[in-house]
Amino acid sequence: MKITLEIAGTIFGFLAVYLTIKENIWCWFFGLIQVVIFVFIFYTAKLYSDMILHIIYVFLQIYGWYHWKYGGKNENNLQITKITNTVLWVLLTLVLTFVLGYLMQLKTDASFPYPDAFTTTASLVAQYLMIKKKLGSWLFWIVVDIVAIGIYFNKELYYTTGLYVAFLIMAIIGYFQWKKRYKKDLDYAK
């Protein structure tokens, strides 16, 4: 059952990221299915920070769909923009990582409390920035994917590890595709 769920979550996760790169609003639907599946996977793997993250993702998937549909000018066509206050986002990620990691280490039997807390907090920042269509969100995802690959491999979640290797490659592609689109939109606006 665990492997079947992991394979299904992997497929839906791959589709969600692929559609995000393409700026297709269906990314949020496939993402919703993926995050629900991974709530159960991470609970059984004792990756509680990741489990909490995926519970929050359920709501962020719904908000992301809404924002991409109605968040642009005249309620359409949300544009890619650059992140402002990058240092603030990085500091927020690090502080929240320390707090969550400490709580997980102190109060639970969590595996990898600090790396798991990092992937959780950095993913929340990345997801929020993705919802807002910020180009730099992909850079957060790249770092998250690198750390997550190590965690999931060590927990013997091999399909999930493979998914995050694919996510890493897709995040790099997504960054360059969104950057190209961002520059094109800037040129068009001139």
Rank of each mutant, 00 (worst) to 15 (best):
residue 76 N to L: 08
residue 5 L to A: 07
residue 145 D to G: 09
residue 174 G to Y: 01
residue 177 Q to H: 06
residue 19 L to V: 14
residue 21 I to W: 07
residue 29 F to T: 09
residue 182 Y to R: 04
residue 97 T to P: 03
residue 189 A to L: 14
residue 128 Y to R: 02
residue 140 F to N: 00
residue 138 W to G: 06
residue 55 I to F: 14
residue 91 L to H: 13
residue 137 S to F: 06
residue 86 T to Y: 09
residue 190 K to T: 13
residue 123 S to C: 05
residue 45 A to C: 07
residue 81 T to E: 13
residue 104 M to R: 02
residue 165 V to D: 00
residue 178 W to Y: 04
residue 138 W to F: 05
residue 72 G to E: 02
residue 126 A to H: 00
residue 97 T to N: 07
residue 29 F to P: 00
residue 152 Y to A: 06
residue 43 Y to S: 06
residue 171 A to K: 11
residue 124 L to V: 09
residue 113 P to K: 11
residue 139 L to K: 12
residue 23 E to C: 08
residue 163 L to A: 10
residue 46 K to Q: 08
residue 135 L to A: 01
residue 177 Q to R: 09
residue 116 D to S: 14
residue 103 L to R: 05
residue 167 F to P: 08
residue 66 Y to M: 12
residue 166 A to F: 15
residue 131 I to D: 02
residue 181 R to S: 13
residue 38 F to R: 09
residue 41 I to S: 09
residue 133 K to Q: 12
residue 58 V to R: 05
residue 51 M to F: 06
residue 167 F to W: 12
residue 186 L to G: 04
residue 51 M to Q: 08
residue 126 A to T: 06
residue 21 I to K: 08
residue 151 I to C: 01
residue 39 V to P: 02
residue 63 Y to S: 08
residue 20 T to S: 12
residue 54 H to I: 04
residue 98 F to M: 10
residue 163 L to W: 11
residue 44 T to M: 03
residue 77 N to T: 03
residue 105 Q to V: 05
residue 128 Y to S: 04
residue 13 G to Y: 03
residue 11 I to T: 10
residue 25 I to W: 02
residue 173 I to H: 12
residue 177 Q to T: 10
residue 70 Y to M: 13
residue 165 V to P: 01
residue 108 T to W: 01
residue 64 G to D: 05
residue 62 I to W: 06
residue 47 L to A: 02
residue 30 F to R: 11
residue 89 W to S: 11
residue 148 A to D: 04
residue 96 L to V: 02
residue 83 I to G: 07
residue 31 G to C: 04
residue 112 F to M: 05
residue 140 F to C: 01
residue 112 F to Y: 15
residue 53 L to N: 10
residue 187 D to V: 10
residue 32 L to A: 07
residue 58 V to G: 00
residue 90 V to N: 09
residue 122 A to V: 14
residue 42 F to W: 03
residue 125 V to D: 11
residue 101 G to I: 02
residue 80 I to Y: 08
residue 22 K to S: 05
residue 46 K to D: 03
residue 101 G to S: 02
residue 52 I to Q: 10
residue 57 Y to C: 03
residue 16 A to S: 15
residue 38 F to H: 11
residue 144 V to P: 08
residue 148 A to Q: 02
residue 36 V to L: 11
residue 89 W to G: 03
residue 91 L to C: 15
residue 33 I to K: 00
residue 69 K to I: 00
residue 180 K to Y: 07
residue 97 T to V: 12
residue 180 K to R: 15
residue 74 N to E: 13
residue 46 K to S: 04
residue 151 I to K: 02
residue 119 T to V: 14
residue 14 F to M: 01
residue 156 E to L: 14
residue 114 Y to T: 00
residue 44 T to D: 13
residue 10 T to R: 10
residue 139 L to T: 15
residue 102 Y to T: 15
residue 114 Y to F: 09
residue 181 R to L: 15
residue 172 I to T: 14
residue 170 M to H: 05
residue 49 S to R: 02
residue 25 I to A: 07
residue 172 I to W: 12
residue 88 L to F: 14
residue 4 T to C: 01
residue 166 A to M: 12
residue 123 S to F: 07
residue 63 Y to D: 08
residue 183 K to N: 15
residue 96 L to T: 05
residue 73 K to R: 14
residue 13 G to S: 09
residue 85 N to P: 00
residue 155 K to V: 04
residue 4 T to V: 10
residue 154 N to W: 08
residue 61 Q to M: 14
residue 150 G to V: 13
residue 77 N to E: 14
residue 129 L to R: 04
residue 66 Y to Q: 12
residue 184 K to S: 13
residue 182 Y to S: 07
residue 67 H to C: 00
residue 5 L to N: 04
